[in-house]
Design a protein around this nucleic acid. Structure first.
Lengths: 192, 192
DNA sequence: CTTGTCAGGCTAACGCTGTTAGCCTAGAGT
DNA sequence: ACTCTAGGCTAACAGCGTTAGCCTGACAAG
């Protein structure tokens, strides 16, 4: 770990991950594969059981229910996104551009996990305290100012989710759009 | 209708709305009330039927299925959003700020309709040709340039959806965040 | 006036979902 | 040797979207 542009990343240590039993971890791993390979609709308790060679009700011996499976996946998604963003800050180049690039790259690499992690209301009680904030901090580190950081995060999330959902016209030059957005935020940061 | 900052709004006339039978329109209206009052989970075919004094299977005499009901709602959402954005362009003040304000206002006024309209993949075949593009054009009219317009739209959508989903920390000063975002895009537009 | 058509309701049922209750069995601990 | 329990199982429930098939009242044609 070294540092970003404005502050040492070590200021916000990564929160501890929730501890799962080995079997529960296997189940979550299988759930992740199912989710990524076949989409959110395919992630059913019965399909998950089948992939593990067991029946759906047996899963409940290891995890409270489908929500708990999803919470574990969301935790993975946030943790990996956070790691990718902090790593991007450590690289060369402007931190705003670096964070945006890493964000998009991560989301497109795991689209269904990203959607699950960031879509819809979030059951915070099921997540490790502070994980969400930790994962978002790189935006603050890149901007040096909380409001602009939130705005930058919103831009990044909006871009990614609209791209994943195929909401942009087919003719869209998304690389250019990302560049334009980066340019706007870069200008706002350096010139208040 | 008059004009926005860069181009007359009449350049892109509102696409025709899909025609529903009176009874089908009643059903869609009831669906909208159900959706807004009790959330997306409550919008089931049986609940919808009950609200109309009929059984769920009877709905299929008027609409193809739940997807058709949702498509009609999405169409309403997009049409109303578009109308609000064009109206905002006609007002005083900077068009970027006006469009952002109208977008947020509209989304927060009908959160569940907004989520339905903008979340997840979109079945374009079920929508009037060009409606989506028409509803998004005000962003272009405000920016005068397609890439910046897409970026602005992404920012607005990200802000709104994260706010609706309660993803921002409770302490967030979202008004300020919107202002910061507007400032960034305004600067990018005027100073290329 | 009778007859035929059919729009628009109904019930029953299917296959799917998450979930619960209760049973059974192999292995660990005392 | 006895007990306990982790971790599997089946059966079942309620709710979901949806389909098939029936029925009835209104309305048009002869």
């Amino acid at each position: 770990m070294s540092q970003g542009r404005h502050a040492p990343t070590a200021l916000t240590p990564q929160p501890a991950r929730t501890q799962l039993t080995p079997r529960a971890a296997e189940i979550v791993q299988a759930a992740r594969e199912l989710l990524e390979e076949q989409g959110p609709e395919a992630l059913t308790m019965r399909a998950l059981g089948e992939r593990l060679g067991m029946r759906a009700p047996s899963i409940y011996k290891h995890l409270k229910g489908k929500e708990a499976v999803e919470a574990a996946l969301i935790e993975q998604g946030l943790a990996e996104m956070g790691a990718a963003l902090y790593a991007a800050l450590d690289g060369a180049g402007d931190p705003v551009e670096a964070v945006l690039r890493a964000y998009r790259r991560m989301a497109l690499a795991h689209p269904n996990l990203y959607r699950l992690s960031t879509g819809g209301p979030l059951n915070r009680a099921a997540l490790p305290e502070g994980l969400e904030e930790w994962a978002g901090t790189p935006f603050f580190l890149a901007c040096g100012e909380p409001q602009l950081a939130q705005a930058l995060w919103s831009f990044a999330h909006g871009m990614v989710i609209l791209e994943l959902d195929g909401r942009f016209p087919d003719s869209s030059a998304l690389d250019l759009t990302w560049r334009e957005g980066a340019r706007a935020f870069l200008a706002a940061r350096t010139a208040p």
